[in-house]
């Protein structure tokens, strides 16, 4: 399990980084975190993005919805790894925190209480992002029952 755990942690980090790259290379209005990236790096990224015409050649769902899915997938996966892919009171609490924070952001955006634009597609992608790691838990449980 330890060996697998390393891979799963890497997968979680990779998903988060992939979402970040979509923001950096494809999103037009700058995200707040870009302020922490050195200016010359940001300029190089923008020039590369412009030169390759990346944002116009990429479907909208990849630019606007996939980052949410990757964020949720990465978050849920991280919580699953911490709690060893086991379902009990404590892990359920943290999985709920993770799921509700994803859904909650969208609801708060809908109510204009936090910055951002509410989108039903975001909700669907967030739920999909959470479902995949949870299905790992159910698969592990089914496998354990069969053994």
């Amino acid at each position: 399990m330890g060996f697998q755990k390393t891979y799963i942690i890497l997968l979680s980090i990779l998903s988060l980084i992939s979402g970040g790259f979509i923001y950096l290379f494809l999103r037009k209005p700058p995200a707040v975190f870009q302020a922490f990236i050195p200016k010359n790096y940001m300029t190089a990224i923008r020039e590369l993005s412009l030169a390759r015409n990346l944002s116009t050649n990429t479907p909208d769902w990849i630019i606007y919805n996939l980052p949410d899915c990757l964020w949720m997938f990465s978050f849920t996966l991280a919580i699953c790894v911490i709690w060893d892919f086991k379902l009990h009171r404590q892990s359920k609490f943290w999985l709920a925190v993770c799921f509700l924070s994803g859904i909650g952001f969208e609801i708060l955006q809908h109510m204009s209480l936090v910055p951002g634009v509410f989108d039903w597609k975001d909700l669907i992608f967030i739920i999909s992002g959470a479902t995949l790691p949870l299905s790992f838990i159910f698969k592990i449980r089914i496998d354990e029952k069969n053994i």
Partner: peptide
């Protein structure tokens, strides 16, 4: 779990690109 959740929530906030 607290640390991981904080990091992810901060990441979500910092990715906001619309102040409308």
């Amino acid at each position: 779990s607290v640390a991981v959740s904080t990091v992810f929530i901060l990441f979500a906030i910092s990715s906001s690109d619309n102040f409308e």
